[in-house]
């Protein structure tokens, strides 16, 4: 999904854990290749210079620190960078898939998520209560209302979405949140 929003002038190579580097856009109808899928099991295309490899090599790339950035969703994230995104005991277990490998292996871990749960509860918490995906692994949290970085001393609010007050962000965040001295308005594209 993120790949749909990368500006054309950016030179970005997409890795997909099932064994491909250089994932391209979705194919036109009739051009689908059932042997060319992304990790969400959708048919995709391969860009010029792309490559295929098996699962062991794919995760050697991941764990070996060769991937610059991974972008994931979250159910809970804590002020110390702990992440939970794969199971709610008694209600929902999806499976960790490659997420536990990605969060320890990628150079930078970015979360994109709603700031609060569907019930309005904070998802950025003092301590995660759900089963963890990784400990102290998150670098950046991007929500519908805020841009926050995880620093050694805790969370730092750096940008706020247009029309949202600082107080609203603080109220919707359970974990302690410091405010950057150069706090800015978030740039939001259509």
């Amino acid at each position: 999904m993120v790949s749909n929003y990368i500006p054309e002038e950016y030179d970005v190579t997409i890795h997909s854990e099932n064994g491909v580097l250089g994932v391209g856009p979705f194919p036109y109808e009739g051009d689908e290749d059932p042997d060319l899928l992304n990790a969400s099991k959708e048919t995709v295309t391969l860009l010029q210079g792309g490559s295929y490899f098996d699962s062991a090599m794919s995760f050697s790339m991941v764990r070996g620190g060769h991937i610059d950035v991974t972008i994931l969703g979250a159910m809970e994230v804590a002020g110390n960078g702990d992440l939970a995104n794969w199971a709610i005991p008694g209600r929902m277990i999806s499976g960790m898939g490659g997420a536990m490998d990605l969060v320890v292996g990628a150079q930078k871990v970015i979360l994109t998520m709603e700031h609060v749960s569907k019930r309005g509860a904070p998802k950025i918490v003092k301590a995660c209560t759900l089963p963890l995906t990784g400990k102290g692994v998150v670098d950046v949290i991007i929500t519908d209302i805020a841009f926050i970085t995880v620093e050694p001393e805790g969370l730092m609010l750096r940008e706020i979405a247009p029309g949202v007050s600082k107080n609203e962000v603080m109220e919707k965040t359970e974990a302690p949140l410091q405010v950057a001295s150069d706090l800015r308005e978030m740039f939001v594209t259509a």
Binding site: S55, A56, S58, S60, R63, G97, G98, D101, G105
Partner: peptide, 23 residues
């Protein structure tokens, strides 16, 4: 974890008795 699964299978085929991983 998917990468641990792949590496455990790889280890089985490659004669590696065990390995340490951060995952």
């Amino acid at each position: 974890p998917q990468g641990t699964m792949a590496e455990r299978i790889r280890a089985a085929g490659a004669g590696i008795s065990a390995f340490y991983t951060p995952t």
